[in-house]
Computed example of a mutant assay.
Amino acid sequence: MCVGLRLAGAEVSQVYISLPSSAGEPPKRLVGFQKVSLNPGAAQTINMTIDPNAPNHPLGTWNKDAQQWTNPAGSYSVYVGNSSRSLTLAGTITQ
């Protein structure tokens, strides 16, 4: 994501994931964010990696019967923006 500001300040890029509907989870889950400080007129490209096997289980749900985290199979929607109400990029991944 490329972020830019007209005045000196900071911008926070946020990544949200929607799990497959079979997971029965809320519509969006914040799975990553990064704050960058910018000078007036500056822009910066940032990269964020969302690891499905990370300790915070960004793509997982708790399976109480198996007593373990599982990542549901299916399509995940990915959204990027500077708030949950301003998501300017979107895509889909399949697992």
Rank of each mutant, 00 (worst) to 15 (best):
A66S: 09
Y76M: 03
A73N: 11
V15D: 03
Q67M: 02
Y16Q: 04
S86E: 12
Q95Y: 15
Q14Y: 02
Q34P: 02
A66H: 03
I50D: 05
S18F: 12
K35E: 15
T49V: 14
P20W: 01
A8N: 01
E25L: 10
L89E: 10
G60W: 05
G41T: 06
A42Y: 07
R6D: 09
T45P: 14
R85W: 01
V31M: 00
Y16I: 03
A42R: 05
T49K: 10
S86C: 12
A8Q: 03
E25C: 06
T88Q: 13
T92V: 15
A10N: 12
S18P: 13
S77E: 07
K64A: 11
G9T: 00
I46R: 11
R29M: 12
Q67K: 06
F33Y: 08
P52H: 02
F33P: 00
S84C: 07
I50P: 01
L5G: 06
A54R: 10
G81I: 02
M48A: 12
A90H: 07
C2H: 07
P27H: 08
Y76W: 04
N71M: 12
Y79S: 12
P58H: 09
G32L: 00
A43I: 05
V12I: 13
L30P: 06
A90S: 14
V12M: 12
M1T: 02
V31D: 13
V80L: 14
A73W: 00
T49W: 11
L87N: 15
Q34L: 13
I93G: 03
G60F: 04
T92G: 00
S83F: 02
T49N: 13
K35A: 13
N56F: 14
G60D: 10
D51K: 10
S13A: 15
Y16K: 01
Q34F: 10
E11M: 08
Y16E: 05
Q34I: 14
P20M: 02
A8L: 01
